[in-house]
């Protein structure tokens, strides 16, 4: 069984990455593995919760759209995809990558697919953070003219 922390990391990445980016990277990869779909891609909602005062009792903010899918590889590895939005092929691809990450091509996938995807997301985050940083207020005190 694969380490759940590592699996959490790649599943989270596959959920957050834009569907189109995953599709492009997957196509570049050029794999066409066989699989059996266990649960057809399904669009649903997840109720998002927050906390009163950020640390207090939980409350419901509203739902978000999520698409999920499960499949099995011929050798028995089961992959699950839970992705943000309503793109069924995104969920299917995420489930497929999740299943393949449990096989011996995991290392290659990690290097050539997941790593560039993660770097893409990190670059986008860094770009936003840099723009926010440029709007940081730099207070200075005016000369008070005390003498």
């Amino acid at each position: 069984m694969t380490d759940s922390t590592a699996r959490q990391t790649w599943m989270g990445l596959l959920a957050r990455v834009p569907a189109r980016t995953l599709e492009e990277k997957w196509d570049e990869f050029g794999l066409e593995p066989e699989y059996t779909v266990l649960r057809q891609p399904e669009i649903g909602g997840v109720m998002v919760r927050g906390r009163a005062g950020a640390t207090g009792a939980a409350f419901n903010i509203g739902e978000m759209t999520v698409t999920r899918c499960s499949l099995r590889l011929p050798d028995g590895e089961v992959g699950h995809g839970y992705v943000q939005g309503r793109d069924k092929s995104h969920a299917l691809r995420a489930a497929l990558v999740d299943a393949l990450m449990q096989t011996d091509i995991a290392e290659t996938l990690q290097r050539d697919l997941l790593k560039p995807l993660r770097e893409g997301l990190e670059a986008a985050r860094a770009n936003r953070a840099a723009k926010a940083a440029a709007t940081k207020v730099d207070f200075f005190t005016m000369a008070r003219g005390e003498d």
């Binding site: 399904e42 669009i43 649903g44 909602g45 997840v46 109720m47 998002v48 919760r49 927050g50 906390r51 950020a54 939980a58 419901n60 903010i61 739902e63 759209t65 999520v66 999920r68 839970y82 985050r125 936003r128 953070a129 723009k131 926010a132 709007t135």
Partner: peptide
């Protein structure tokens, strides 16, 4: 929204970890 099956509820989000635009 009413046509969507409910998959579940999230864990409460941690706004302390927010990547702040503002």
């Amino acid at each position: 929204r009413t046509t969507l099956p409910r998959f579940g509820a999230s864990r409460p989000v941690d706004t302390g970890e927010m990547l702040c635009d503002r």
